[in-house]
Simulated scan of single mutants.
Amino acid sequence: MRKYFISAIALHEERFRDTGITCNALITLDKLQEFCPMDDSFETLMKIVFDRILRVARNIADIDGSEMVR
């Protein structure tokens, strides 16, 4: 297991060289597409998941009596 983490850290170091980013958690929104390219099937899945999350958020806002989803 340790060798997988060491490999992942090496990937991070190479990927983020000269960016000021040190790990995936620190990727800014404007850099997501650059550092997290998606194939078509994954992008479709993400849109479906986002749609479902948004529907749940709409229900929660309705319960809260809010016109805006927050």
Rank of each mutant, 00 (worst) to 15 (best):
H12L: 05
A10R: 12
A10E: 14
V56P: 01
I60P: 00
A25N: 14
I63M: 07
F16W: 14
I6D: 09
R58C: 01
R58P: 00
S7L: 11
G65A: 11
I9C: 01
F50W: 07
D64A: 09
I53F: 05
N24S: 02
I60R: 00
Q33Y: 01
A61L: 08
L29N: 11
E34D: 10
E14D: 05
S7I: 05
L26Q: 03
R55W: 02
I27N: 09
R55S: 03
M46E: 09
E43H: 13
R15E: 01
C23N: 05
F35Y: 10
L11D: 10
D18Y: 05
D64W: 01
I48A: 10
E13P: 03
I9F: 12
R52H: 07
N24F: 05
G20D: 04
Y4G: 00
D51K: 06
A57H: 04
R17I: 06
H12F: 10
I9R: 14
D51P: 01
L45E: 09
L29M: 14
Q33L: 08
V49A: 14
K31D: 14
K47E: 15
K31C: 11
A10D: 04
L54S: 09
Q33R: 06
Q33F: 00
P37K: 02
S66G: 02
D30C: 09
T44P: 00
I6S: 02
F5P: 00
D39A: 09
A25W: 08
T22E: 13
C23W: 03
I53A: 02
V56E: 05
M38S: 11
L54N: 11
A10H: 09
T44D: 03
I6L: 13
D64I: 06
T44A: 04
V49Y: 03
M1F: 07
V49M: 15
L26T: 05
R2E: 10
V56Y: 00
A61G: 04
D30R: 04
N24E: 06
I21K: 01
S7T: 12
M68D: 12
T19I: 03
R58M: 01
M1Y: 03
P37E: 02
L45F: 13
S41L: 00
K47M: 15
I27K: 10
N59E: 08
E14V: 12
Y4A: 05
R52Q: 10
R2S: 08
R2K: 05
V56A: 07
M68N: 15
E67N: 03
V56S: 02
Y4E: 15
G20F: 03
T22D: 13
I27E: 12
R70M: 10
N24V: 07
L26V: 10
F50D: 08
S7Q: 13
